[in-house]
Every structure is written in structure tokens, then in C-alpha cells.
Simulated assay, not measured.
Amino acid sequence: MIPFLDLKTQYLNIKDEIDTAVLKVLESTQFILGSEVTALEEEFAQYCDADYGIAVNTGTSALHLALLAAGIGAGDEVITVPFTFVATVAAICYTGATPVFVDIDPVSYTIDVTQIEKAITEKTKAILPVHLYGQPANMEPIIEIARRYGLTVIEDAAQAHGAEYKGQRVGSIGDIGCFSFYPGKNLGAYGEGGMIVTNNPEYTRTMRMLRDWGQERKYHHVLKGYNYRMDGIQGAILRVKLRYLEAWTEGRIANAKQYDQLLANSGLVTPTLMPYSRHVYHVYVVRSPQRDQLQQKLNEHGIQTGIHYPIPVHLLEAYQDLGYQAGDFPHAEKAASEVLSLPMYAELSAAQIKTVAETLQSLVQGVTV
């Protein structure tokens, strides 16, 4: 069996450092926030070339607090994409604002920047681009449009730790950047976790209070806040793993290049590296109209795969109240019916990649009509 993700091997490779870090927190009894979390905030912000980091309990919480800090609320509109994990849209709804969708560019899978301006209304307050699969959205035109209309740019970088746009780390390009440390992410916790980065001290002050019941100091509640604090153990684990992130990222990039070469003549659509991009390959996605048959056959051959994502958000039952219909965003809908995520992680061996690619090649011939 070639697993889609192998977290156990990664853990075993750094076990001594992880175990020592966890025991240090247990001995300190700083279980919520604390010195390890503070150190992680500083180190991750520095990694992203940002001034401030605010650690939270999930990537969803990061998006929610970023939107609140930017003043987003009931009656406002936030422009984003329907081809993303549901948390992007859920966080907008948490604030009482309305998500307004723009279709994706079919090559990069990120927001089609040529469609943004026509979606802006007098209610629009922010643009929330998603750096999907580890590839940055085309940020320069997004920033230009936002500045022209006085909009806030909040980056959903949940899948893009260490990705770069024209040499600049994502998360620090817009006004606020949001990351997830869900275990399967390029930088993953051993549980839940998230981080917000920004260069704005006022946003930072607001989000630090909002994550901790709105307290400026204990029992002095300035805002109506939330319990979105990061655990001390997760902070310690992430600090250890952050030291390895660049090496793991280079491993992912090398693995993606091997996939590219082996699948070049397969008839499948492989990822396109955009000219402005350092793609960090959170997932390696191919496309085929016979996606479902291929996935089934690969599983029968002992190769696990994933689908990110099978239903665009505007067609999910939970979001029918937004009023969108099938056909509204054809590129997102077509991608959702064709994308297939292959095994991708730094520890994946060249032999495993070759097996996946050769099996996939042979299956494509068998299922092509």
C-alpha cells in the first residue's frame, strides 16, 4: 500500500525532538498559550516575512478573526472562490457577511483576477484569495484592485506554508494572512492549530484579544471574544517542525518534478507552475474526465488518493441559501469533477512515485474511451 499521506514516518524521523518538546511543556504546565506559543508566533511570522503572528486553535478561527479585525460584519460582502475547502466560506458567514463568488482560473485553480472587479458592489469590504494546493493566487492585480476600491485583502494560505509570489512569502502580501496547522498540512500540528500573520499592529491587538475571550488582560474583557487559543503542546510541536519545513518543502518540489516527468505523456493534466510562483505542493493534483474510475482502480492497486474538492461550495447543500446554481462557475465545477490528488509528502520515495505514475499511466489507457 502506498498511502496518500504518511504522518507516522515523519514523526519517527523527528521523534526525539518532538518528545523532548512535549515533555518540556508538560513539566512547565503552560498548557494554553504560554512561552512555546509566543516563540512560535515570532518564528513563524519571521518565516513569513511578517511583523506579527497570532496563534489560534484552527485555520478556520484564523480566517474568522482576520475578517473581524478588518471590520467585516453583517451587510458586508467578501469576494472569494467556490473551489476551496468549506472553511473559507464558513468563516465569512460567521461574521454575518455574505460570500460573493468569482470563478477560478482553470490553469492555476486560484481566483480569476479578471473577474474580480465586476463582482464588486458598494457592500464589498474585502477580497479573500485562496492559495490552493500550495500555489499562490495572482496577488499583484488583486492588491491593485483592492487598493483602488479601498478593500482589505485577506490571504487564505491554509495550504501554502512557504509558498512565494514573485519572491515574497504568501501571508505577508495582503493585509492579513491565515494558515492552518491541521495535521496533513505541509506544517501540521499533532491536533488542530492555526496562525494569523500581519504587519498591522492594530489588527494584531484586536486579534490577540478576540482569540482569548476579548481580554486585554485577565478578566478585563474589552471585546466580545472567543476561545480560539492555541495549546502549548501544539506550539512546542510546531516549533520543532518549523525547523524542518524548508527541507520538507524542497522534498515536495523534487517529488512534484518527478511526477511531472513521469506523467508528461500520460494524457492527464498535471499541475502548471505559474511564472510568478513558488508552488509548495500541499497536494499534487492531476485531472481526468475519468477521475472516479481511475481513483477506484488505483485503490485496487494499493495506491491511496484524495479529491480536493469534489463539490464546489456554491453547490453544497449547506450553502444553497446563497442563491447560486449549477453552471454559475463552470471552471470550478469542471475542476471539481476531474481533479485527483496523488500521494505527496517529503518522505515519499522515488520508487513509490514511479509505481504511482506507471500504474496511473497503464490505467489511463484502460479507462480512456
Rank of each mutant, 00 (worst) to 15 (best):
L5W: 14
Q10S: 11
N13Y: 04
N13A: 15
E17R: 15
D19Q: 14
L23V: 06
T29P: 00
T29C: 07
L33H: 01
G34N: 10
E36R: 10
E36K: 07
V37K: 00
A39F: 06
L40Y: 15
E42D: 14
E43M: 03
E43D: 14
F44G: 01
A50H: 09
D51L: 15
G53T: 05
A55R: 03
A62N: 04
L63V: 05
L65C: 10
A66F: 03
L67R: 00
L67I: 00
A69P: 01
A69D: 02
G71R: 03
G75E: 08
D76Q: 09
V78G: 09
V78D: 09
I79A: 10
I79Y: 12
I79H: 12
V81H: 01
V86P: 00
A90T: 14
A91H: 01
Y94S: 12
G96C: 03
G96Y: 03
A97K: 08
P99K: 09
P99E: 09
P106H: 10
V107W: 10
Y109L: 15
A119R: 13
I120V: 13
T121E: 00
K123C: 07
T124V: 08
T124H: 04
K125G: 13
A126C: 04
A126T: 02
A126D: 01
I127M: 12
P129E: 06
P129W: 09
V130Q: 07
H131D: 13
